[in-house]
């Protein structure tokens, strides 16, 4: 189990996370929703150990970060590094001696080509494949459905379900509510750095409705289009 207690994070004078309390159990999929800038990615980075923070994150692992797979919104690939080399690096970093990735290549990625030349969706698939090969316990997927086609979307959904069945913990953020409602057990709504609502499957429809009711109001009238 992972318990987040009073997690706070500021950048200079700006407080991004204002005291988050959450807990995550193995075998559950958690959705994190919120507008841009609500603090979703900062929360993910803090859990992954990529950001320093105030508060506490407790887990049964001595060092949680060594058991976390983090799929970034826009995975970064080094220039002139092949897909195979990227996977090799991820495995080597976790002391996993793996060389043959063809069997795990669910997405039929051209692993012998430069990853920088992959499409947005292919890059995301490669990064996701890497996190799975690392045999992690916690999977943090930041906008995994962005930029992938409908077919890959379905595969990712199935992968998430498989991770859940394997008793892994999965955290997902997405702007596409349907993708979250298909996979998540619990969804947390974050607004301005705070968890304002947590709903289980029974409350998904209401949360979806609530999020759709957001109205830009008269602000749009001020936009001049020339």
């Amino acid at each position: 189990m992972i318990a987040i207690r009073n997690l706070r994070k500021s950048y200079g004078g700006k407080t991004v996370l204002k005291g988050i309390d959450l807990s995550f159990e193995p075998g559950f999929v958690y959705g994190i929703v919120g507008q841009n800038g609500a603090g979703k990615t900062t929360l993910f980075k803090a859990v992954a150990g990529l950001e320093e923070f105030e508060g506490a994150i407790e887990s049964s692992h001595e060092l949680l970060k060594n058991h976390v797979g983090f799929l970034e919104t826009n995975p970064i690939f080094l220039s002139r590094m092949t897909g195979w080399e990227y996977l090799k690096l991820l495995c080597a970093a976790r002391n996993i001696k793996e060389d043959n990735f063809e069997e795990e290549n669910l997405f039929d990625l051209p692993l012998d080509e430069y990853a920088e030349n992959y499409s947005t969706g292919m890059k995301k698939k490669l990064a996701l494949m890497g996190t799975i090969l690392q045999r992690n316990e916690l999977f943090i997927l930041d906008e995994p459905f962005n930029g992938v086609d409908i077919y890959s979307n379905l595969i990712i959904t199935k992968i998430v379900r498989k991770l859940k069945a394997a008793n892994k913990t999965v955290l997902i953020s997405s702007h596409i509510f349907s993708t979250l409602s298909d996979t998540c057990d619990i969804i947390h709504l974050i607004e301005e750095g705070k968890v304002v609502k947590s709903v289980d499957r029974d409350g998904f429809a209401d949360l979806d409705q609530e999020m759709r009711s957001f109205d830009i109001g008269e602000k749009l009238d001020r936009l001049s289009i020339f």
Partner: peptide, 12 residues
């Protein structure tokens, strides 16, 4: 310097 994730991935 490489992106921080390329260091973070190491379990050591």
């Amino acid at each position: 310097p490489e992106s921080q994730t390329y260091v973070w991935i190491y379990a050591c």
